[in-house]
Structures are given as structure tokens and as C-alpha cells.
Computed example of a mutant assay.
Amino acid sequence: MIEITSWLRIDEDELVEKAARASGPGGQHVNKTSTAIELRFDVANSPSLTDDIKARLTALGGSRMTQEGVLVLFAQGHRSQEMNRQDARERLIELIRRATEKPKPRRPTKPTYSSKLKRLEGKTKRAGVKSMRGKVRSDD
């Protein structure tokens, strides 16, 4: 079991890890070893997550989410497969943690009377500046 928060845990069986070849520089080492890790987590069918967490996680996942609701994380920053595996898991845990936080509801507010006056005053001043930029008229 992977502990996300004090009350939320996901089973290791829900994660699918696949090793792949990493791209980028590294010479012979990169060309012959599969150190990159592709971590897949089926958000849509996870029994560990509630519906609201699933919805927030899907939104946070963005382009990393597939059409089927699977979150795909690709880690290739380290030279060792184990460190890339750990990095991918940490990123997944952090994403799920962020999804567990409920957003604070926005309370609609009205602008104060003085802020309205200030805004209109600024607009009047700006209009005066712009009107002075016009063609010069001779009053002969």
C-alpha cells in the first residue's frame, strides 16, 4: 500500500510500470539500457479514490490523461531505473495529494463605492490626456 495522506492509501496493484529507453544524451549507456519508467495509474477505475478526487485529479493531469481516464507519467531524469521509478511514484503521490485538497469556494464581492469613483476618475483623466493629442485648432 502506498500512503498518500493519513486517510488515503492506494494499492500497489493499481500501478502499472513499464521500462523504456530514455531519450537524450548519454552515449552508449542510454543506447543499451532501459532506464526510463512509464507509470500508469487508472484514475477512472480506482477503488481507492472518491469521485470528487477523481474529477480533480483528471483536471490536474491535463495532457497526461488518456481518453480512458489513465494517468501516464514518464520519468527519465536519472541514470538508474530505480531512481526514475521513485521519481515517477513521488510525482504521482504529489498529484493525488493536490487532488485531495478541496478548493475554497469563491465568494462573489461587489466593488466599493470609493473604488468605483477612483476608476471613473482615472478614466476621465486618461480621456483628457488623449483629447489633448488631437490636431491643433486655431481659434482665429
Rank of each mutant, 00 (worst) to 15 (best):
E3L: 04
I4K: 01
I4S: 09
W7C: 10
W7M: 08
L8I: 09
I10F: 02
D11H: 09
E17R: 15
K18W: 02
A19P: 06
R21W: 08
A22S: 13
S23G: 14
P25L: 11
G26D: 10
G26L: 12
G27T: 13
Q28S: 10
H29W: 13
V30G: 14
N31G: 09
K32S: 12
K32T: 11
T33H: 07
A36T: 06
E38V: 15
E38H: 08
D42R: 08
A44L: 14
A44G: 02
S46E: 05
P47Q: 10
P47L: 05
L49V: 01
T50G: 11
T50H: 13
D52E: 11
I53V: 15
A55M: 06
T58P: 03
A59C: 04
G61M: 01
G62R: 05
S63R: 07
S63F: 00
Q67L: 00
E68D: 14
L71E: 08
V72A: 06
V72L: 13
A75Q: 02
A75S: 14
A75P: 10
Q76Y: 02
G77I: 05
H78C: 10
Q81A: 10
M83N: 13
R89W: 11
L92S: 07
I93Q: 10
E94Q: 15
E94G: 06
R97V: 02
R97F: 02
R98A: 14
K102L: 13
P103W: 00
P105G: 03
P105Q: 01
P105W: 10
R107E: 00
P108Q: 12
T109N: 08
T109Y: 02
K110W: 06
K110V: 11
P111N: 04
P111V: 09
Y113K: 15
Y113F: 13
S115A: 05
K118L: 09
R119A: 09
R119K: 14
L120P: 01
L120F: 09
E121C: 01
T124M: 05
K125M: 03
A127F: 00
V129Q: 07
K130M: 09
K130W: 03
M132W: 07
M132K: 15
R133Y: 13
K135C: 04
K135I: 08
S138D: 11
D139H: 12
D139F: 14
